[in-house]
Amino acid sequence: MEQAYGNFLYIVTLLTAGGIYAILALGLNIQWGFTGLFNAGIAGFYAIGAYVSAILTTAPSVRHLGGYEMPYAVSFAAAMIVAGILAWGVGKICLRLRSDYLAIATIGIAEIFRLILKNETWATNGPRGVSQVPKPFESLPEPWNALAFLAMVLITVAVIYILLETARKSPWGRVMTAIRENEPAARAAGKNVARFRMEGFVVGCMLMALAGAFTAHNLKFIGPNVSDPLTATFLVWVMLVVGGSANNKGAILGAFLMWTVWSATELLTSRLPDDWAIRTAYIRIFLIGLVLQIVLQKFPRGILPEQRLTSPAKAPGATGKTVD
C-alpha cells in the first residue's frame, strides 16, 4: 500500500513536470514550428519567468529582493510581461536577419541572464538562489495539494492548446505558415512579415516564462541552475522535434514522452554505484543528443507530423504532404 502510494506521488510529480515542459514545447512550437524562428535561449526566458514570479510572491528576506507577497495571478502575469518585453527587444534586433542570428543572440541572452542571476546577489541571492517560494494549494492536505497543482498545470496546458489550435486555423495561423514556407510570397501578398514574426516570437517567450513561473512555485526554490541550457533549452528542442514540430498535439506528446524517458533513465542510473552513476549521466545526455540526430535525419516530421490546412474542395488526397 505504502509502495503504491509512493508510486502514485511519483507519477503526480512526473506529470506536473511533464505538463510544465509541455508549456515550454508549445511555446517553442509557436516560434519554430509555426514561424520558423530558432530560439536557442529558451532557458533565459524560462529563468526570467521563474525569478520574477518567485520574487513577487515570497515573504520578505534579507538575502534577496522580495516581500511583495503578490497573488499568483499577478506574479504569473508579471513574469509573462517581463519576458515579453525582453523578447520584443531581442526580436527588434534579430528578426530582420536570418534565423542563425536569432539563435546566436538568444543563446547570448540566456548566458547574460545567468551572469546577472549569479552576480546581482542583492536581488537574487546569487548562486544560493531564492528559497521558500510559496506553492499554490500547499495548505491542502497531502495528496490533494500536489493534485491541485497538477490540475492547474494541466488545465493551463489545455487552455494554451485550445488557443493555439484556434490561432493555427485562423487567418493569423495561415499567414504564419505562409511566412515560414515562402517569405517573399507572403510579403508580395501584402503581409507585414516583421510584425507576424515578432508576434510569434513574443508569444512563445511569454509561454516559456509562464513555464518558468510554474517551476519556481512547484520546486519552492529557484537558483541560477534553472537556466541550465541542457534541461531548459536542449531537452525542449528534443521534445518538439521528436513529438512533431508545427503540431501542437505533437509538442505535448513529445514533452510527456521525453520527460518520462529522461526521468526514468535517471531513476535507473541513480541506482548504480556512485562512479557509474556519474558516468551514465553523461551517456544519457549523449543518447538524448543521438535521438535528436536520428529523428532529424530519418523522421524529420516527428511522431505526429504537421497537419496542413487545405481548402475543403481539395481535401481528399491533398493532406499530409509537407515540405520539410
Partner: peptide
C-alpha cells in the same frame, strides 16, 4: 537543419 544538428552535436 544544420544549426539544429550542430546544436545537438554540441551536447553530444
Amino acid at each position: 537543419m544544420l544549426v539544429i544538428a550542430s546544436f545537438g552535436m554540441m551536447l553530444m
